[in-house]
Amino acid sequence: MSRHEHLERSIPSTSSDPTAEVTVTINGVTLTRQVSTRMLLSDFIRHGLRLTGTHVGCEHGVCGACTIMIDGRAARSCLTFAVQADGAEIRTIESEEKDDGTLSALQQAFQECHGLQCGYCTPGMIMNIRSHFDSGEELDLSDDGIRELISGNLCRCTGYANIVKAVRRAAELTGRA
């Protein structure tokens, strides 16, 4: 390539997609941004807000890696447009740690029980479990009950057994068991 080729190129920085204004409260912080109307909420959180703890595994709603909480309920951020979240309250894995930097009971339990290996599915897994813990519903802590609770989140590393243990351990740590 010529040493001057770059001078002839004008490379744009952003797309010319139509945008809309979106206001969300994310992990307690309310903010307003212009976003492309077709941007998936997962991309908005990860790249727009640079909260990269939320992972993307399939972008068709099956694997659950991108699970976050919208208005207190677990949801797939890859199956939601950012514009749909206007006015919503969102929680991501980044909210899970305590303010003093210590791990939440759920996180502690995952570490104690070796409930993660590569850690890619983990944030989505934890947000799904978090939504159940926070919903006030009675937790079925039998093996089958926990497996059903986490069914919907694929994990390719752990074989799930240690995640089952971690859920039970977290219930103990939080006085739910």
């Binding site: 659950g64 919208i70 677990a74 199956l79 799904n128 939504s131 919907g152």
Partner: peptide, 9 residues
């Protein structure tokens, strides 16, 4: 019907 996170939306 699918899983809870899907039923939530």
């Amino acid at each position: 019907v699918a899983h809870v996170p899907i039923r939530n939306r």
